[in-house]
């Protein structure tokens, strides 16, 4: 019964995504320029980091290739999360306009429908992420720091896990909208600022901020912690299990908050 339900949901999810993309494709120009610009911005941000790195050589002992690893895992995680759950990030619009009403009328989980609205496949960012990953792993393998046959599949899993974690944080943040309605500033903090922070090795931050990024909003488990095992060899494989546990905890908290929030939904006047 449970498995059939899950299968059903996956089928429904695929169908909704297909129609969402068909919708978006009505505006092809916008679709492709949007993808291109997003990739370009992400690339420029990394280029800036690369310039700084090449000036100083390392950040707290992390080489350019190692930093690129952090950056690429983040980019991949983020683009996967945004591709598969795009409008969770935009719940505010639904709350302010009252458009959530329509989603509540369907015999489907609201979150499932929300996740499939306005889907944008982040080709550009995915491409950039994979490009940087190839660059980073190439150099590291050349130095004998990693074994490609294990690093590649593990990194893909790490990116998926990271996507789940970022999704969990986004879900928890969005759910606060049921109380606060306007949440864009909170998102700046929990999503944008944390994403910016984990482009760099965690060691550059003061102790309290390290604590926030590993325990409060555990984004360090998206890339830094797994990288300690994969590229630095400073931690054992147990840290991957810990990262998976962090994702599970965050998604669980997000789901709980979401469910509580849904029952408080106030809609808007008409």
């Amino acid at each position: 019964m449970m498995i059939r339900d899950v299968k059903d949901m996956v089928k429904m999810y695929k169908l909704l995504i297909r129609f969402s993309i068909r919708s978006r494709m009505q505006y092809r120009f916008n679709f492709w320029t949007g993808s291109f610009i997003a990739a370009f911005i992400a690339f420029m941000e990394f280029a800036l980091l690369a310039v700084i790195l090449s000036r100083f050589g390392t950040i707290q002992g992390w080489s350019i290739a190692e930093s690129a690893y952090l950056y690429s895992v983040l980019t991949l995680s983020k683009s996967i999360y945004r591709t598969f759950a795009s409008d969770v990030h935009h719940l505010e619009q639904y709350l302010v306009s009252g458009n959530l009403d329509g989603l509540l009328l369907r015999p489907l989980p609201v979150l499932l429908v929300l996740m499939t609205q306005n889907v944008s496949i982040r080709f550009g960012e995915l491409l950039l992420g994979f490009g940087m990953l190839a660059y980073s792993l190439g150099i590291l393998a050349g130095k004998g720091q990693i074994e490609l046959w294990s690093a590649i599949p593990l990194t893909l899993l790490i990116s998926l896990n990271g996507a789940l974690l970022l999704f969990g944080i986004a879900l928890a943040t969005a759910a606060t909208g049921f109380w606060l309605t306007r949440i864009s500033m909170l998102q700046n903090l929990t999503e944008d600022a944390t994403h910016t922070a984990i482009r760099y090795p965690l060691t550059i931050f003061p102790g309290w901020l390290k604590g926030v990024l590993t325990i409060g909003l555990p984004v360090a488990f998206v890339n830094y912690m797994p990288a300690l095992y994969i590229v630095r060899g400073e931690a054992g494989p147990w840290i991957l299990a810990l990262s998976a546990a962090a994702s599970a905890a965050v998604v669980g908290a997000g789901a709980l908050l979401w469910r509580t929030g849904m029952s408080r939904y106030q809609s808007t006047g008409s």
Binding site: L16, F19, S23, G102, S270
Partner: peptide
């Protein structure tokens, strides 16, 4: 979800259709 199956709702002020797609696509979804 169970109640929604036997219920049809129309908000005159707000369309429930897929805005950018033809009507028949909305029916398919």
């Amino acid at each position: 979800k169970e109640a929604a199956r036997s219920l049809g709702v129309l908000f005159g002020q707000r369309s429930q259709l897929w805005w950018d797609l033809p009507l028949k696509d909305s029916f398919e979804v």
